[in-house]
């Protein structure tokens, strides 16, 4: 089953490689990983999307906690949460496809952020599944390039991950 782990980790050189190394050494999956400093520049927040049985997720959480630089780990799936991911997608936009792409971007509440005679670059945010749906919805042959940030997640309501 798919899980989203939120991790607070010391913003130090090498901390990311410890997390990545742990996943590869113990054979855990990483679907996506995103990381950046928080409002406190000494701390980074990492979101890892992974999958596995409950036992495996429990081990992953324990192993992450064991890393000296990891301050806190929560599994967002334990409660209500919000997941967002940003995608930039460059598509061919010529002839009647140009109008079609504009409409499609509107339907998915995307924004066209760069325009040339032949291309649009569309910015799209949402849960990973929505971005997947957009890719499914447009003709594969018009996609020139995609770049995705990987998911970021946060608990709903009063649930806060802080030290």
């Amino acid at each position: 089953m798919r899980h989203i782990l939120s991790i607070l980790i010391e913003n130090e050189a090498g901390a990311l490689s410890r997390v990545a190394g742990l996943f590869s050494a113990r054979g855990y999956n990483i679907e996506s990983l995103s990381v950046a400093p928080t409002e406190d520049p000494t701390l980074s927040r990492m979101t890892i999307v992974t999958s596995g049985s409950d036992d495996i997720i429990e081990q992953i959480t324990k192993q992450l906690n064991k890393l000296i630089e990891v301050v806190k780990v929560i599994d967002l799936h334990e409660a209500e949460h919000i997941e967002r991911e940003l995608m930039l997608i460059k598509v061919r936009a010529t002839g009647k496809e140009r109008e079609e792409m504009k409409r499609m971007a509107d339907i998915f509440r995307g924004r066209i952020i760069d325009v040339t005679e032949k291309t649009y670059t569309i910015e799209l945010t949402g849960p990973g599944a929505k971005l997947d749906a957009f890719i499914q919805a447009v003709d594969r042959s018009v996609i020139l390039e995609t770049v995705r940030t990987g998911a970021s997640g946060i608990g709903r309501g009063e649930r806060i991950l802080k030290i």
């Binding site: 036992d55 429990e58 064991k66």
Partner: peptide, 11 residues
């Protein structure tokens, strides 16, 4: 002392 040793191979 190590939580990750618990329930690693045996529940």
């Amino acid at each position: 002392v190590d939580p990750s040793s618990i329930a690693k191979r045996v529940k």
